[in-house]
């Protein structure tokens, strides 16, 4: 007989992580995020209350560490809410926020219409090719966003391939103007974010017990009704996740409206970019960013709650 190790609690030799090493593992990413993620936001927040100045950096007041220690009241009094009243008073910004929300909502709806049948089709595919189909859905996501948006310019142009094809087929007599319109932006957003819609819906459909639908069919329920009564409600968590994953980034999108949209297109990500790079107005662009963040906080919070509930349910 070999000696059996004594496993009584008192004899345990398991080495637990020391306080020091635990602290180290927590502290490194924590401090990094505090410094490079939270602090920058506080700076944006502060600058959004500053005044525009012709200086380097182009805003006032510049509050240093010394001012914080000594009170720096004269400098703090220079802070204003002018940038916010400016944004609220200028119809350009208000319109840009509203049209971003509208365009993101329309694109999300279109992405759902296109993505759901694809996700459903993959979930019903033979098991042997399912993982291949999922990989094929993910693969375009790995290739550059910029390149994928750029690829559409050549297709949607007036003398582009889509118009050539339609003219050749005789569907249209005149080339359609698609590039530099809102339609091009919808196409761009649906195309770029489609994998984000397909994958969560696929995940929830794949988990679903398909015997439920079979049982309904056996009991004489027509397939369409079985779909709306059983399949769709069960895939709802995936649908909701997909909606938020497309909607939230689409609101602040810059590359798509800039390359595919026209000069009349208003989207807030592009407005912020222009405000910063063309007008060089840092305080106003900071205020635009703060408001955009406040607009997005609600959908982000709902999304996080849904995710948390999902994890709790599993």
């Amino acid at each position: 007989m070999t000696a059996v190790p004594d496993n009584s609690p008192g004899q345990r030799t398991r080495r637990r992580p020391s306080r020091l090493s635990r602290g180290f593992v927590v502290a490194v990413p924590y401090l990094w995020l505090l410094f490079f993620f939270l602090l920058p936001f506080l700076i944006v927040f502060k600058i959004s209350f500053s005044q525009t100045a012709i200086a380097q950096p182009p805003y006032l007041p510049v509050i240093g560490l010394a001012d914080l220690v000594s009170g720096g009241w004269t400098k703090l009094r220079q802070l204003t809410i002018d940038n916010y009243t400016w944004i609220a008073g200028d119809p350009l910004y208000v319109k840009a926020y509203l049209s971003s929300l509208r365009m993101a909502a329309i694109s999300t709806a279109l992405a759902l219409l296109v993505g759901y049948p694809v996700a459903y089709g993959i979930a019903r595919a033979p098991r042997s090719i399912r993982s291949l189909l999922v990989m094929l859905t993910i693969l375009p996501f790995w290739t550059s966003f910029l390149i994928r948006v750029y690829a559409w310019i050549g297709i949607l142009k007036n003398e582009g391939l889509l118009n050539q094809l339609l003219l050749w087929l005789g569907v249209i007599a005149q080339p359609l103007t698609i590039l530099n319109t809102d339609v091009a932006i919808y196409i761009g957003i649906v195309y770029s974010y489609l994998p984000f819609m397909i994958l969560p819906i696929y995940a929830s459909l794949e988990r679903m017990d398909h015997r439920l639908v079979e049982a309904a069919n056996d009991l004489g329920c027509p397939p369409t009704r079985a779909f709306w009564a059983i399949t769709f409600p069960l895939s709802l968590p995936g649908v909701l996740a997909g909606i938020f994953l497309v909607f939230i980034p689409a609101v602040g999108e810059f590359v798509i409206p800039d390359l595919l949209g026209g000069s009349s297109t208003l989207m807030i990500g592009k407005t912020l970019w222009d405000e910063f790079f063309s007008n060089r107005d840092w305080p106003v662009s900071s205020a635009v960013a703060v408001v955009l963040l406040m607009v997005l906080v609600i959908p982000i919070m709902i999304f996080q709650r849904l995710q948390a509930r999902q994890e709790g349910a599993v």
Binding site: P29, P40, V44, P249, S286, L292, L293, L296
Partner: peptide
């Protein structure tokens, strides 16, 4: 706060992330 900070950049628009980091580097 930690879990929030880890998750937030994933859904944050790039323009906001870029702007905030730039302002940090400037200050």
């Amino acid at each position: 706060l930690f879990s929030g900070m880890v998750a937030a950049p994933m859904v944050m628009p790039d323009v906001i992330l870029g702007l905030s980091l730039l302002l940090l580097f400037v200050s």
